[in-house]
Design a protein around this nucleic acid. Structure first.
Length: 522
RNA sequence: GACCCCAUCGUCUAGCGGUUAGGACACCGCCCUUUCACGGCGGCAGCACGGGUUCGAGUCCCGUUGGGGUCGCCA
């Protein structure tokens, strides 16, 4: 066997330590022996690596990366992964790298890439290096493949995809785990035939790795097979590029979704075959939809841009996402800086969590409450515009929105419930009409309209006085007077205080609306 | 099917051998109130099950059940 099965084991002590010790552990950084394209990378610090292991020097700043593939928009689950990487880097004063894994030429698009970048920026996750593109690093991968080939740690495989697929189907049908059967492993090269390159994986023993969220995870090598590291067209595959990239970018901590746990043993084997130290891993629990399945488009808003469109604050989304899988005592609301300060990978749980829109709404409302009226107006304006409403008068908008802001959980909602302030003609809810604009209610409305017409001071205090005296004259309850007015002014039975609404709308518009309401039931 | 991961209120979670099992969202009630909210107070609700270990188990171990993930010349 070419590979000494040097398994990455950890001592008991290290295991016990894992919950507590934040994660600046162990992994030494490898010397950057390859020289990649980007000039920026040339400036990066390099260091020769001590061997890995928990006794290594920890003076190295952590380097982490987020590596999305531009085959879809930035998913909310991906955003959470990015966030934990970003938070970890910022907390420890480390480096956050963005890498675009665009080797799937078929499905990768510039648009998706752009939307991922936009999403990252919107959420305020800035990166220190990159974006790097795998498609620009092909020479690097080729060199590594060649190295393994030269050392006999990889071999060409001429099995056709059809043959492979047939064997896979058969294995599955027989209830076996589909694995490559090693047909080409010891077969002499077949010149002329298109060949993929497979990694010659050990068949005995086991491979273990340390996971910050879960402790030590072990796989039996017999469960693994000889994975393809380069396709027959020469392009490298994911499990290979990720190792080469993480090594050459000197990544110290690989923080990613736990759907990658099953890839990790293969990658560890690759690190070892290549003679590189293994980084620290942290596999984050997934985010599920309400059906407890991996969150996807089917569960409603899946991409982060949709949250922007729904009027959520980026810091609220970040806050909510951070609290999914991570907690900090009883604390719920955090600003971005507070998150950076408090974040601790070792406090991340290991059970999957369900995305809860209700709670996100509450968190968003908490963050909205921190904004001034003017900021609220500025942020609501685009949503008003989207409804073809004119919110050009900022002072007016600020005053109007101030009366509604506490009733909304996001800006879209705020725009919707505040629309009556910005419309010329309002629509009245038919049920409200029946209940509050008929009979005695209409009479009272007519009378108060006439009183209001004679009133010049439309301050809230003055209006209150006017209503109070009218009340004692009519001998009715406030409710019986306020609701008809409210309905005629806003179209709804629920609104801010009636004096506020009256005062903000102003005499002319208010009277016009009351008159229109009266007309409609006549 | 095989392998891997996971398991405290409906949901997010605290808990790291001794707690009346704590907080938050949601829900319900009361207060505030001209409506709806906000806010305040209170309430409902949880350790999946079975074995161990221990004086003592939500906490440690094993098993069962349940859920999820992965088994590509996708990433």
């Amino acid at each position: 066997m070419l590979l000494q099965l040097e398994v990455f084991t950890r001592s008991q002590a290290a295991r016990l330590k894992r919950r507590r010790a934040a994660c600046l552990s162990s992994v030494g950084i490898i010397r950057r022996l390859l020289n990649p394209a980007s000039s920026r990378r040339a400036r990066q610090k390099t260091s020769s690596c001590s061997n890995s292991g928990s006794n290594g020097k920890d003076n190295m700043k952590p380097r982490v990366r987020f590596a999305p593939s531009p085959t879809g928009a930035l998913h909310i689950g991906g955003a959470r992964t990015a966030l934990f990487n970003w938070l970890f880097a910022r907390h420890h004063g480390g480096v956050f790298i963005l890498r675009i894994e665009d080797t799937d030429l078929e499905r990768s698009t510039k648009e998706f890439e752009q939307s991922i970048l936009d999403g990252m920026r919107w959420l305020g996750m800035d990166w220190d290096e990159g974006p790097f593109y795998q498609t620009q690093r092909m020479d690097l991968y080729r060199e590594h493949v060649q190295k393994l080939l030269d050392e006999g740690k990889a071999y060409p495989c001429t099995c056709t995809p059809e043959e492979l697929e047939a064997k896979r189907a058969q294995a599955l049908a027989e209830g076996r785990k589909p694995k490559y059967d090693g047909t080409c492993r010891n077969r002499p090269a077949q010149p002329g035939k298109p060949a993929a390159i497979r990694f010659r994986a050990p068949v005995e023993g086991s491979v273990s790795f340390h996971d910050i969220c879960r402790g030590t995870i072990t796989f039996e090598n017999r469960e693994l097979d000889d994975l393809i590291i380069a396709r027959s067209d020469g392009s490298p595959t994911y499990n290979f590029t990720v190792v080469v990239d993480d090594v050459t970018m000197a990544i110290t901590h690989v923080i990613r979704g736990d759907d990658h746990i099953n890839n990790t043993p293969r990658q560890v084997l690759l690190y070892e075959a290549l003679g590189y130290p293994v980084p620290e891993f942290a596999h984050l629990p997934m985010i599920h939809g309400s059906d407890r399945k991996k969150l996807s488009k089917r569960h409603g808003a899946a991409s982060v841009t949709e949250y922007r469109e729904m009027g959520y604050l980026p810091e609220a989304v970040v806050n909510y996402l951070a609290r999914l899988g991570w907690s900090c005592g009883d604390r719920e609301i955090f600003s971005r800086d507070e998150l950076i300060k408090a974040f601790d990978l070792s406090a991340v749980g290991s059970a999957p969590s369900i995305f809860d829109f209700e709670k996100l709404g509450w968190v968003n409302a908490q963050h909205m409450a921190k904004n001034t009226d003017d900021e609220i107006a500025a942020m609501t304006e685009p949503f008003l515009k989207a409804m073809s409403l004119d919110a050009g008068d900022r002072a007016y908008a600020a005053r109007a929105l101030a009366t509604e802001r506490e009733r909304a959980r996001n800006f879209k909602e705020l725009a919707e419930i505040s629309a009556f302030y910005f419309r010329d003609v309002i629509e009245i809810d038919p049920k409200a009409t029946e209940k509050w604009l008929r009979g005695d209610n209409a009479k009272r409305l007519d009378t108060i309209k006439n009183r209001l017409a004679l009133q010049d001071d439309w301050s809230e205090q003055a209006l209150a006085k006017l209503f109070e005296s009218a009340l004692s004259e009519f001998g009715c309850k406030m409710l019986e007077l306020a609701q008809p007015v409210r309905v005629s002014l806003t179209g709804s039975t629920a609104s801010p205080g009636i004096y506020e609404v009256l005062s903000i709308l102003g005499k002319e518009r208010a009277l016009k609306r009351i008159e229109a309401a009266l007309q409609s039931v006549r």
